[in-house]
């Protein structure tokens, strides 16, 4: 027990600070992905409910692809494919070697997947808002933009939040995949620690518990926010 604690302590001999740095990167990656995934997902959702068939088709193909391909494969395609494409593009001008940052590749891949799923949540929420709301705003002479901003969005957030919180929890766990492309997230740091200490069970269990703590804290916080958004509803 004391040995385990020594291994997990912060400082020169313990791995605590390495794990903490990894956990911090995991959080940063998830938080950096979130806004892109949300905005992209919302735009895709708007395309899906649009009256224009071509737009709907394009958006539906997008979601079919990114919901059907494994996240790990999406990550590899973005990471290696991005590398090849960028190298080819840079190669047109100079012959310097460029490397795609694992963080950015991870962020793009996770945002693509997140947006595909979040667009479904947004579509369901948009459809749940009664048509009369938009029509009333129209009748009042509000512009489309004003309608979206002050009539649709406030209701949308309330309806979409449960689905989005679920997606956030999934995203948090999916960040673990970036450890495969050698980005120093929590899981990768844990693997390094295991390689050095030969204590796989202890370290992977600690990593699991850290992820679990993140999940529980997020679930608790999001539950509070959800209750706050529903404060105006009759019980």
């Amino acid at each position: 027990m004391a040995e385990s604690l020594a291994l997990l302590s912060f400082g020169e001999t313990g791995w605590g600070d390495e794990l903490a740095a990894g956990a911090w990167l995991t959080i940063r990656l998830a938080l950096a992905t979130l806004p892109f995934g949300l905005v992209l997902g919302f735009l895709i959702a708007l395309a899906k409910v649009s009256g224009e068939p071509a737009l709907r088709r394009g958006a539906n193909i997008y979601t079919t692809i990114f919901r059907g391909v494994p996240e790990l494969l999406t990550l590899f395609i973005v990471y290696y494919g991005g590398q090849i494409a960028l190298q080819a593009f840079i190669g047109l001008f100079t012959d310097t070697y460029v490397e795609v940052s694992g963080f950015v590749a991870g962020m793009i891949a996770l945002a693509l997947v997140f947006s595909a799923f979040s667009s479904e949540v947004f579509v369901a929420a948009l459809k749940a808002i009664p048509k009369g709301q938009g029509e009333a705003a129209w009748a009042l002479g509000m512009s489309r933009r004003a309608t979206l901003q002050s009539v649709i969005l406030p209701q949308l957030i309330r309806l979409a939040l449960p689905g989005l919180s679920n997606l956030w929890l999934i995203l948090l766990k999916e960040t673990a995949l970036v450890s495969v492309i050698a980005l120093d997230d929590l899981l990768r740091r844990t693997s390094v620690a295991v390689g050095n200490t030969k204590e796989p069970f202890l370290f992977y269990m600690v990593a699991c518990l850290i992820y679990l703590a993140f999940s529980l804290i997020s679930a608790f916080g999001l539950g509070k926010v959800e209750r706050w958004t529903r404060r105006g509803e009759a019980r």
Binding site: K173, F201, Y204, M205, L216
Partner: peptide, 23 residues
């Protein structure tokens, strides 16, 4: 249920595959 739904599948796979070697 909380443990398996709250942790990444990849971490669980590592836990079982590398962790079992210890036992």
């Amino acid at each position: 249920v909380t443990f398996f739904r709250g942790t990444p599948l990849l971490a669980q796979v590592f836990l079982v595959y590398y962790g079992s070697g210890e036992f």
